[in-house]
């Protein structure tokens, strides 16, 4: 086009953008099966960013993340098994845009194993803000990645499942499907029992801790508070760590 070597040299400085760049800008989305039916899932190069049930997914994601949302070819690693089994700790999450407090709350909720529940106060204690129980509830209510951060495993201590992003009924359904005996928790709560201890191990747990579920009736002792259990000579379980919520 031009004979001038300088102009030719300048024109040769043009280059195409690297291929992966779009993934840093746009999120991808797909639908995936779950125990609560089909969910819409948005993810970025960092991990899963948003899980939505029902109508209005794209608009909700846009309002939340302000990123373009393009269809995905394939699901991100680990998503489908995590939704199927409820074991989600291996799935990468993109929690950018959340406050530090909310992020801490979600990461704490993520440590609750399948089939177990913890009180809101336990999360508050985990994140070092023992008095922020209501704020914990609000942070969990705004969980952008339900199921992958199992906020449904945080329940009221009276055995009522409590509020949930996808509705209280869905929360109960999920917990029952995961093997949590909510009826038993409620029965205990009515009897003012919030901790179970074993006189063979000398350990006191939350009622749904897998260590508590193994205690046979003859050796099981219920306590209203952790302090009472400790007075009776029991030490807090190192797995479910009830000491945190006391």
């Amino acid at each position: 086009m031009t004979q001038d070597p300088l102009l030719a040299g300048l024109a040769a400085l043009a280059t195409d953008a690297p291929d992966g760049l779009l993934e840093r800008i746009a999120a991808r989305w797909l639908t995936a099966p779950s125990p609560l039916g089909e969910l819409s899932v948005a993810f970025t190069g960092q991990g899963i960013a948003y899980v939505h049930r029902g109508e209005g997914f794209a608009a909700a994601f846009r309002a939340r993340a302000g990123r373009p949302l393009l269809p995905a070819d394939r699901p991100p690693a680990g998503l489908l098994p995590a939704l199927r089994t409820g074991r989600s700790s291996g799935v990468a999450l993109d929690l950018r845009g959340l406050s530090d407090f909310q992020r801490d709350v979600l990461l704490a909720a993520r440590t609750i194993p399948r089939g177990e529940v913890r009180p809101y106060a336990w999360i508050a204690a985990q994140v070092g803000r023992p008095k922020a129980v209501r704020a914990v509830g609000a942070a969990l209510g705004a969980n952008p990645v339900p199921l992958l951060v199992p906020c449904h495993r945080v329940t009221r201590s009276d055995g009522v499942a409590g509020d949930y992003v996808f509705g209280a009924a869905a929360k109960e359904r999920l917990l029952v499907a995961e093997g949590v005996d909510l009826d038993a928790v409620r029965r205990l709560a009515r009897a003012r029992v919030f901790y179970l201890a074993s006189d063979t191990t000398g350990v006191v747990c939350f009622p749904t801790c897998h260590n508590a579920r193994r205690i046979t009736a003859a050796h099981r002792h219920g306590f209203r508070s952790l302090a009472q259990a400790q007075e009776a000579g029991y030490r807090p379980c190192r797995t479910c760590r009830p000491a945190l919520a006391a």
Partner: peptide, 8 residues
């Protein structure tokens, strides 16, 4: 359409 122009 414009990734190359913007990136360059």
């Amino acid at each position: 359409a414009y990734r190359g122009v913007v990136f360059s």
